[in-house]
Design a protein around this nucleic acid. Structure first.
Length: 180
DNA sequence: CCTCATGTAAACACGG
DNA sequence: CCCGTGTTTACATGAG
């Protein structure tokens, strides 16, 4: 459906070892955005980089995204970072370590990724060539690297869409990112 | 105790 | 009429 572009998701340093983004703030209550209106009526999401930069606060970590994505297979996609490592955990069993003191990356089979939906979506979008992709692609991208979603929860897609709409970091664009 | 971020479930509007 | 998408509420939690 609509390609989406991400700008700056949220995320604040949370669990040690994971999450490394900051920014995104909602200020107080959202009222009405100026909204350019422009074209974009059908269904497409996009982020237009500049413009709309209401909250520069978020843009901070964006620049460091390089590190973030480094952990992923950015250069060549299709590379499952899902290392076939061991993964103990029945399902929701924190087991050792109160949190995840281990490597957040790697290890993901049946357990929930240490990333929030916002990050997941952001990563998917960032990994795309044009920084924008349709919702379906986002689903696939996530599914590819996190088999966890292949089963288990029902409604994770709903959450993805919810985040897409909730965060102002993601913009809907008309099919075709124009020139980026 | 309150606020904020996140996760989910669900109600809807809409277009195909 | 059903489905996918997008928006929006409401509620539950956990961290701070």
């Amino acid at each position: 459906m609509g390609p989406v572009t991400g700008m700056t998701p949220d995320k604040k340093a949370k669990t040690p070892g994971a999450e490394k983004a900051a920014g995104l703030r909602q200020s107080h209550r959202m009222g009405s955005l100026p909204d350019a209106g422009d074209a974009g009526r059908p269904k497409a999401t996009v982020v237009d980089s500049d413009s709309a930069d209401d909250e520069l606060t978020n843009l901070n970590w964006l620049h460091e995204s390089t590190n973030l994505l480094t952990n992923f297979s950015l250069g060549s996609e299709g590379l499952p970072i899902v290392s076939p490592l061991y993964d103990i955990e029945g399902d929701s069993v924190p087991s050792f370590s109160p949190s995840c003191y281990q490597n957040p990356e790697k290890k993901s089979s049946t357990s929930k990724p240490p990333y929030s939906f916002s990050l997941l979506i952001y990563m998917a979008i960032e990994h795309s060539p044009n920084k924008s992709l349709p919702v379906k692609e986002i689903y696939s991208w996530i599914l590819e690297r996190f088999p966890y979603f292949a089963t288990a929860p029902t409604g994770w897609k709903n959450s993805v869409r919810h985040n897409l709409s909730l965060n102002k970091c993601f913009r809907k664009v008309e099919r075709k990112p124009v020139a980026r």
